[in-house]
Simulated assay, not measured.
Amino acid sequence: MTAEPLTAAKLFERFFAPHYPPDALADLAAARATDANPAGNPSILAQIEDAAAVFARLAPGALGLPDLDLDRSDASVHRLGAALTRERRDAWLSPAGAPPGAPQAGRAGEPPMLVTLVTHGALYVGSCVVKNHGGRWQVRSPLWESLVRLQSRAGTGDLAIFQWWLKALSDEEIGRGRLADRYRTHVEVPTFDAERLPILAAGDRRIPRLAKVRYDTLYKHLRAHLPELRSVGEDFPSPERFEEMGFKSLEFALLGGGRMLLMHGATADGVHLFWLDASGFVKSAYYPADGFPAHVVQVEGEKVRVIVSVGGEAQVHEMLWWGA
């Protein structure tokens, strides 16, 4: 018989729910919306910081990575995300001090290592947002449910970092670095100071569409219309990979007052976007799409909107101009 998948909901129900007060479980939505520190008691915030410090000190050993540097930098979240593998997660499911595979009920008062790591790890990642990006704790009970309110050019959002952990450790996402991906998407990208990028070209310059797309024709096109871009960069798709994509055409837009170039085009399976700055390739995105109607890219203020058709239904993807 195939084991039941460990979804984020199942992880919560099986391992974390037993550690919640009955009234909180009776109405989780209300508990997650209720301020547990309305008076701004600094001792409660100190408890959060202490828990984050405990995680930074003990997690490297629990992960079997004694040299893992958890220094509360953004980079440390990426290192942590890469360490969340299926093998490690499965080992943490047994009660603390029990051999892997032992019954989850285990010894009274000794939760699985998974619970200890995630409840403290959520506060560690939140502390990185607070320290590096000016986030503010929105305290909840229990403490690991606390949110971090982040103001950025994308707006104001409350980051549910405990939920990030549950999703990243689910069967669907385990081993894919999704904790770091969410941190990048919801923290690093919105707070990136894009105005510090050097101007590549005048923002009102129009670069014509490239109808016959090959690596060599793209190179000549950029040399003719954007000579300031000396190279597409080492991380741009190789000539072989670029040919495999089979672009029907490529279109171009200068973003951020000429600080970045956006290239986008359709292939047989979807739409690819590439962001380049003065140093070349920065990032890319791909959206599955029907062959008809053609995709649309709209640039409005600080936002880029990509509209594609999937199964005959329009889907809209919106991001800041420096990319997702």
Rank of each mutant, 00 (worst) to 15 (best):
F242C: 04
W144H: 15
W92E: 07
A33R: 12
G256H: 11
S249N: 06
I44N: 02
L254P: 05
P66V: 06
L84I: 11
A39M: 13
L123W: 04
K10P: 00
A324C: 06
A29P: 05
F242W: 06
R86K: 14
A53N: 12
L123N: 05
R241Y: 06
A3N: 09
L166A: 07
R140W: 04
R241L: 11
P18E: 10
H186D: 14
Y286S: 10
G291F: 06
A314N: 06
G257E: 07
V232A: 08
K303S: 09
H225P: 00
R176H: 06
A108V: 10
D193Y: 02
Q151V: 09
E243R: 13
D290V: 02
G312L: 02
G323M: 11
A56S: 09
A53V: 08
P99W: 01
A8S: 13
L117I: 12
D235Q: 13
R259K: 14
R136S: 13
L255Y: 07
G246N: 01
I307L: 13
A211F: 09
D193S: 08
P293Y: 05
N37C: 10
S73N: 01
P103I: 08
F281I: 06
R305K: 14
N37H: 10
P22H: 05
G157E: 15
P95A: 10
F162S: 14
E49H: 09
C128G: 01
E244Y: 01
L273Q: 13
A289E: 11
A324P: 10
A59V: 04
A160K: 13
L150P: 03
T185E: 15
V306A: 00
V304R: 14
G81C: 03
E195D: 15
G175T: 12
T156K: 11
R72C: 02
E172G: 08
P99L: 07
E228Q: 15
E188Q: 15
G291W: 07
Q47T: 14
R259C: 12
L147Q: 11
H221T: 08
L169R: 08
H225D: 03
V297T: 13
F16E: 11
D235H: 12
G177Y: 05
D193C: 01
A31P: 06
G64M: 04
